[in-house]
Design a protein around this nucleic acid. Structure first.
Lengths: 225, 225
DNA sequence: AGCACACATTCAGGTTCCGTTCAGCTCGCT
DNA sequence: AGCGAGCTGAACGGAACCTGAATGTGTGCT
């Protein structure tokens, strides 16, 4: 699990880094708000530990700017000893939790783990045609409830057919979209992949969802059990 | 929003009740742990405010017994002034957050709202995939009932795979989350660690929970004996 | 300090599997 | 029947991945 620690007190920052690394986290450090914001934008952290008092851009602003950019990495804010209102405000600017200084290391770790546990994936929608389902982000494919293993090329071809489900797509179209534009090999390769796909997604289920349209190309139709 | 306050100091309990009701919550009060546990079991609260120091059954036990009964109502624990360890333990027994006494009313409300916003059942502390179980706080790992010794790196890689169980994660993802971002060594190191993990968590049990997805990465799937 | 040990990382050779090509076949149309 | 479009299995070359061992690097122990 990879963390970003944004803290300007160098000594504290390094001690946090060492401590958290001992607990098995991978830790990057930013020493001011501007850096912190940039790093949080560029890299996919699992959580961010964010001091409020920072030179340049303070913690509130870092947090709210992240949220504006639609980055929802969990944020744990470090607040001053006696700032009750700070804490309420921290949560309002989009922090997920806060910790009052000074804090014990065990507490920091426990809170971070709680944050990470809450996690949350929300996924882009699957492509569907009948009982055939594709998840492009995971390169996974199902017919009904049984998963089907596809190679990268196979998946790409099927993905293209599925996004154009119901329509006829020519071999040229498929070549242009799945292979590089400069591909000038044998168009027969499309036929080969259609064969592979039929063997994997149709024959075992005794359906024929990839239809040949002679002289024009292929058409994927919705089929159900 | 309906809350349960479990607090034995009658004066504090009533003041909490009045304050929270003024903020628009519906509030029930239990004056000891046994009552609290019973009420939390019988009624569907949206959140529970739970004191640690209680006659009869203390707060930790109330909380862990709730979790054992598979009740994942968000719990906010009230801890003593100086109990750092209390707090870590609170989170470990399944609390979602805690607040150190004495606290300002605005903070209590802000934290409760944050909890309610997160809503939704919390997952148990351990990461689980089939009969493989990880405890990130202890860095321990079991397959069924036999414990498996892992090094720090091995654990981190497996932890990341497990939090994304079922999904394909690329070698780049793994490098980004487990190593520091300035790591620019050979990605082959991921393969090496996958090899180590397979030898420890799969081969002795004759399962294959870490699948290779050629060209895409790795995928951890749930396997059982 | 010096040593032993465990862990992290690199390296090089081996293996598997995927993408592509090719040659022969089948099918539908005129 | 004859033609062209599409089908199919096999074969090959190379990339991706696997794997055992060698080489760094730090940490605790005596």
């Amino acid at each position: 699990m990879r963390l970003l620690v944004v803290e300007d007190e160098k000594k504290l920052a390094m001690s946090l880094k060492r401590g958290l690394e001992a607990d098995g986290f991978a830790v990057d450090v930013a020493l001011d708000g501007t850096d912190g914001l940039w790093m949080a934008t560029e890299h996919p952290y699992d959580a961010i530990v964010l001091d409020i008092m920072l030179p340049g851009l303070n913690g509130y602003r870092v947090c709210s700017q992240l949220r504006e950019q639609n980055i929802w990495t969990p944020v744990l804010m470090l607040t001053a000893k006696d700032g009750d209102l700070d804490e309420a405000e921290a949560l309002d600017t989009g922090a997920d939790d806060f910790l009052r200084k000074p804090f014990a290391h065990v507490v920091l770790v426990a809170r971070l783990r709680a944050l990470l546990r809450r996690g949350q994936p929300e996924r882009p929608v699957d492509l569907v045609a009948g009982d055939l389902r594709l998840d492009p982000s995971q390169r996974q494919c199902w017919r009904g409830s049984t998963e089907i293993e596809l190679t990268a090329r196979e998946f790409s071809v099927l993905e293209f057919l599925t996004t154009n489900a119901g329509d006829v797509v020519s071999k040229r179209d498929i070549l242009d979209h799945v292979w590089n534009y400069d591909f000038d090999g044998d168009p027969n390769i499309v036929e080969v992949y259609v064969r592979h796909l039929r063997r994997k997604i149709d024959e075992p289920f005794q359906v024929a969802s990839i239809r040949t349209v002679r002289g024009a190309g292929y058409r994927l139709i919705a089929t159900s059990p």
